[in-house]
Amino acid sequence: MRMTPRSQRLALVLAGLVLAASAVGLTLYALRSNIDLFFTPGQIAAGEAPSQRRIRVGGLVEAGSVVREPQGLAVAFSVTDRAASLRVHYRGILPDLFREGQGVVVIGELAGDGGFDAARVLARHDETYMPPEVAAALAETGGPP
């Protein structure tokens, strides 16, 4: 079967697209663990994270775990992924969104005692938005925040 020049070009463009997509796909697949922004506490507990190197850990701030130094900026809290939790020590200003139950990403190093020394704390927020009145009403009825 002979192809017209036009369908030849169409086949060439489509083949190029498929090739480019698979090249990029395979590259991303090979790099998949390096593209993740952070380790989870579960991965830390399993020993997957390097020690004595700056790493990022992400998870939720465990409810009731936040302890602040009475006079000063030092704060300690636990970050959990519901499988394992990691005690984080931090000295500095926390982002506005930081609170118990909130997602955070902490940047720092694993300490020798199994805890984590954070140099920076970033807050994550989820994809849910609502007006404050709705949130207050939901909290009263005991629904999700």
Binding site: D36, T40, D126, E127, T128, Y129
Partner: peptide, 21 residues
């Protein structure tokens, strides 16, 4: 969805109501 990111996931989707009033 594929990786752990600081950016949150999508609020809108074709298969569920938006998590926004």
């Amino acid at each position: 969805d594929w990786w752990q990111t600081l950016h949150q996931a999508a609020t809108f989707s074709l298969v569920r109501p938006p998590s926004m009033p």
